[in-house]
């Protein structure tokens, strides 16, 4: 198998490399890729959409239809992980077969096997995961203080996609990462208390619905799908500013969808569908 793999790989690599002889030189401003379609994007972006970040205006306006399907891809990946991994609560045993509790003051750990029912005074004991890492005070406290600022930064990245590198995807990933950090530094149950299963599962479709719904709204108002100048009837500022606002609305939708899906996929993968113990 390895020899066959090596032969295939060398052949394919040679074929691909053979074509690069006819490529235009690297960095050539007169190459077809740089002169055919892109100059209009760069030159007319501010004039037609009032957004200085050309990547955002191309992503969300000129080729906005692609981006809507991209958001759908990430949504369907979240649904797929849920469908494959989630063990429904009715089919799970009531309690995990082995649980561990740690006494806060002394640090002693008790292991309870066989799913037995034990009632422990919760203010003295806390539940610890089976993949137990030693309790680290610094990580827990530092992350607890950092997470709100991370989320604020994520919101900033979404909102400033017009003027600086950023946008819906990037900001959404940062927001999702903040919840994942909460889960990794504390434990999964605390992250579940902050953002429950239903919340993250509903953020995804609502986010994509904002995107597709804006497009459908433009359709209803009489223009083509995702033609934001239709929104000039609803928002102040004229057709060009309406494009800028439309781009912002869909970026918010994208951010919500990406955040919800990242958290949802993480919860399903890390806890193997049981939502009980995890990273």
């Amino acid at each position: 198998m390895k020899i066959l793999g090596l032969i295939i790989v060398v052949l394919v690599g040679a074929v691909l490399e053979y074509a690069t002889i006819d490529f235009p030189p690297l960095g050539d401003p007169a190459s077809p890729a740089s002169t055919h379609v892109s100059p209009r994007y760069i030159e007319k972006s501010i004039e037609e959409t009032a957004v200085p970040n050309v990547v955002t205006s191309v992503l969300a306006d000129y080729r906005g239809f692609d981006t809507m399907f991209e958001t759908t891809v990430i949504f369907s990946a979240g649904v797929a992980c849920f469908l494959l991994l989630r063990v429904p609560p009715s089919r799970r045993p009531q309690r995990a077969s082995e649980r561990q509790y740690r006494h806060r003051l002394t640090g002693l750990t008790f292991r309870i096997k066989g799913g037995a029912e034990v009632s422990l005074p919760l203010h003295e004991f806390e539940r610890v995961d089976s993949i137990w890492t030693p309790y680290d005070f610094i990580i827990e406290k530092v992350c607890r203080y950092l997470i709100p600022f991370i989320q604020l930064f994520g919101l900033y990245v979404i909102a400033h996609g017009h003027h600086s590198p950023g946008g819906g995807f990037q900001g959404g990933v940062i927001l999702g990462a903040s919840i994942i950090l909460l889960s990794v530094s504390h434990n999964l149950r605390i992250a579940l208390k902050r953002m429950g299963e239903r919340t993250s599962a509903l953020f995804s479709p609502v986010g994509v619905f904002i995107y597709a719904g804006t497009g459908a709204l433009c359709l209803i108002l009489g223009y083509n799908f995702l033609d934001y100048q239709a929104l000039a009837a609803l928002l102040p500022g004229g057709p060009i500013m309406a494009r800028s606002h439309g781009i912002f609305i869909v970026e918010v939708g994208v951010g919500m969808a990406v955040m919800g899906t990242m958290v949802w996929i993480f919860k399903n993968l890390a806890s193997l569908g049981r939502y009980d113990e995890g990273l």
């Binding site: 892109s38 030159e43 501010i46 050309v54 692609d66």
Partner: peptide
């Protein structure tokens, strides 16, 4: 605004 001064945004998108 000259297109020559800015890199091509389309591959990034």
């Amino acid at each position: 605004i000259h297109a020559v001064d800015y890199i091509n945004p389309l591959p990034h998108v």
